[in-house]
Amino acid sequence: MSKKHGLEIMLKRLLGKDSREEQVVDGIRNHLRLLYDQCCLLVKLLKDEDVVLIERIMDIEREGDIIRRRVFSELFEGAFIPYMRPHLYRFVEICDRAMDTVEDVAKYYELAQVPSNLKEPAVSIAEMTSSMAELLLIAYDTFQKGKDLRDQMLAIRVYEKRIDDVDHTIRLEMKNISVTSFWEGWWLGELCRSLSLVSDIIEDAMDVLSLIQVSLR
């Protein structure tokens, strides 16, 4: 029996038999799907400046919380072998933190005025972050099939590096922006910080998923 085939059987055993396990697996997928939807809405918010979307982004974060609690409860009630549970908890927690941070961006967007020279790089970061969320979802599907996650991991690192470069440009530009009050500057700073933080968190989530896969070999 090949190594890959063995891993696939093990994953099927771990991920596919019991309905409790199935609920966890489906719950995590829905959670990742929500993260991707939320990132897409963030792109639209920054691009079209449609503040109505802020409420929707916050709603998605709440939906994410509900799924997270349900997944945690299934895990607590005994889904998966004890060895797997902490890793799955951690993965879901990190994805949830990514959703919280997207919500933060939307909230700060409501408070801060994004100067015109920062709009284009901010949209660019949001677009790349949404691509990363899509890749994380693809990676999860690939993981379920028992296939190698190397491609998705590399692609996520590519985006992370590109986001770092744009983030650096934003920071350089920010030096020249004049603000009228402490809070105006604070909100804008937090908006930019949170915006680039989402990609770091998605990268962390990808690392944990990859570790789970390695630990199953």
């Binding site: 691509s131 899509e134 890749l135 693809i138 990676a139 599907d141 690939t142 296939k147 491609d151 998705q152 590399l154 692609a155 996520i156 590519v158 985006y159 590109r162």
Partner: peptide, 15 residues
């Protein structure tokens, strides 16, 4: 090179 990597990774779920 980066674009081709990302394209390959996106095709992951169809492979």
């Amino acid at each position: 090179m980066q674009a081709s990597l990302v394209e390959k990774a996106r095709a992951g779920n169809h492979a």
